[in-house]
């Protein structure tokens, strides 16, 4: 689980994004649009406060600071393939302390969504399996059924671990802290129509066809859009 070396960085022509990278960048920037203040990623001063504050940076292959550095040089692919985005526990220590006000946790979320969207993660990957199971659970019952979620999670990732969990399960069961039957809400139909509607929606950023500069840099979507509209001064920066 914990193996995996640092992801090698490869950029063929300095200053120019490979095609695959451009696509990922496009996807990520559209996700970043949803992060309030996502633009602030530009003002990173690479001080490393985020990495120093992170309780799990010791198991990350790319540190939070490096995530931004890599994004800056046009290397999203290695971030998406890293363990970093999955191991973040969203404790927001980095976001709280960032002197530039960058919402690093939310940026990692945007990365995670991009990776899911692009299907970049190993099959039966624990974090994704967990999220997926959780979502299914909630869509089915309206509430999360803790035991159901954990049992199906372990069955799909490592059934052996399920056996290891039995003693704890028993101790909780004796104290009535485990329920075998899921609590179903009454207006499940309501949830279903809300979810169905939300799923069919086009996200704000998906509306406009997003163009991303093919050169290395930040190239936010709003900027590119503005430039396309001819609002900006001529010449690419």
């Amino acid at each position: 689980m914990m193996e995996g070396d640092r992801v090698a960085f490869k950029l063929s022509t300095p200053g120019v994004l490979p095609k695959s990278e451009r696509k990922l960048r496009e996807e990520f920037l559209s996700q970043l649009e949803l992060v309030p203040g996502g633009e602030k990623i530009k003002s990173c001063i690479q001080c490393g406060t985020c990495t120093g504050s992170c309780p799990v940076s010791y198991v990350m292959d790319i540190s939070p600071r490096e995530v931004i550095a890599r994004f800056r040089i046009g290397d999203i692919e290695s971030i998406l393939k890293s363990r970093t985005i999955w191991v973040c526990a969203s404790c927001y220590a980095c976001t709280t302390r960032c002197p530039s006000g960058i919402r690093i946790t939310d940026i990692l979320y945007a990365m995670k969504r991009t990776a899911i969207e692009e299907g970049i993660f190993p099959s039966r990957f624990p974090v994704y399996t967990m999220s997926e199971g959780f979502v299914k659970n909630v869509n089915r019952y309206g509430r999360n059924h803790e035991m159901g979620l954990l049992v199906s999670f372990y069955l799909r990732t490592s059934p052996l671990k399920l056996l290891k969990m039995l003693p704890l399960g028993w101790r909780l069961f004796k104290r009535k802290r485990i329920s075998f039957t899921p609590m179903k809400i009454k207006r499940l139909d309501q949830i279903k129509s809300i979810v169905a509607k939300a799923e069919s929606q086009v996200m704000p950023s998906e509306k406009a066809s997003i163009m991303v500069a093919s050169t290395v840099g930040y190239g936010s979507t709003t900027e590119v859009k503005q430039r396309a509209a001819g609002a900006a001064q001529g010449g690419a920066k």
Partner: peptide, 8 residues
């Protein structure tokens, strides 16, 4: 967990 899927 839900936040990692579609935000809307």
């Amino acid at each position: 967990a839900y936040m990692s899927v579609k935000e809307t």
